[in-house]
Amino acid sequence: MSLPAVAAPGGPTLEVRNLRTHFFTRAGVVKAVDDVSFTVERGKVMGLVGESGSGKTVTGFSIIGLVDPPGRITGGQVLFQGTDLASLSEAEMRNLRGNRIAMIFQDPMMTLNPVLRIDTQMIETVQAHARVSREEARQRARDALGQVGIPSPDERLRAYPHQFSGGMRQRVAIAIALLHKPELIIADEPTTALDVTIQGQILAEAQKLCAQFGTALIWITHDLSVVAGLADDIAVMYAGKVVESGEVGAVLDAPLHPYTAGLIGSVPSRNRRGAPLSQIPGMTPSLLNLPAGCAFRARCPRAESRCAEPPPFAEYLPGRHARCIHPYIEEAVRA
């Protein structure tokens, strides 16, 4: 059941290598995740950024092993503390889920079962992975609620999800994710549906918990400002591929890939007041039957004929990868 002892103590918590997840639909193969690689170190926050439909969420579900048919992982490796998750049986994966790898979903209004009380939904999670009495499980649930800042947790345990606000529900979801002090949490746009103030509180909470328990965190979002404040590393996804990755400050200050540059340019606060907002022309391509070569070339200011060849994911600067044949190297070096 249990995984082999933690690999090297200094090794990364998660290593994703050339992950591919494809959906085999009647209309054709949708390559939702197509060659995604990144590493998350212990206690670090990895920001996974991209537009809607770029494959961020599917990447998250692929790691935790919850890709539903017609989707299937068709290639690559997910190494969790050195163990290839593909080699585990479904029972072993289940033992991992919610226990050592937890996930937080985007819409807090939808993640809790409306007809079950909070205590039911928390206690079942505790008892799924630990042989403890109901009373002990309730204690742990109450402690977890207190930890994420829910007042009078004893009372709130007996409530139903509809008696909570969106922010409170997301806190409950986070508390559930924290029950077993997982080594890795995948947070899929957990603050997108919330007010800015609540978002700030939850981000601070997340940061604190990472530092406290050494939990590695994958924070999936389309909001660059969140990543800037929270993440240590960043991976930018476009059309199922990671197009750029590196240390968050370096990437945001001087992006290598034109798409990253466009994303950063599109953040309203970066533009001068009164000046027209800059934008990336066009829209994300359909993932169905994507042509070979760089998927961004139709929208890229630097596109040329060579872009029709698939660009390699190369390390242009130490620790900085990009999938582009003419990255902004000079600018990055100067920065």
């Binding site: 033992n95 889920r97 919610g98 996930m103 939808m110 993640t111 079942e124 999670t125 979801a173």
Partner: peptide
């Protein structure tokens, strides 16, 4: 198809 079913699975329930 509901999120709460997927979330229940993500919690590692049988």
């Amino acid at each position: 198809l509901m999120d709460y079913v997927k979330f229940a699975r993500a919690k590692g329930l049988s």
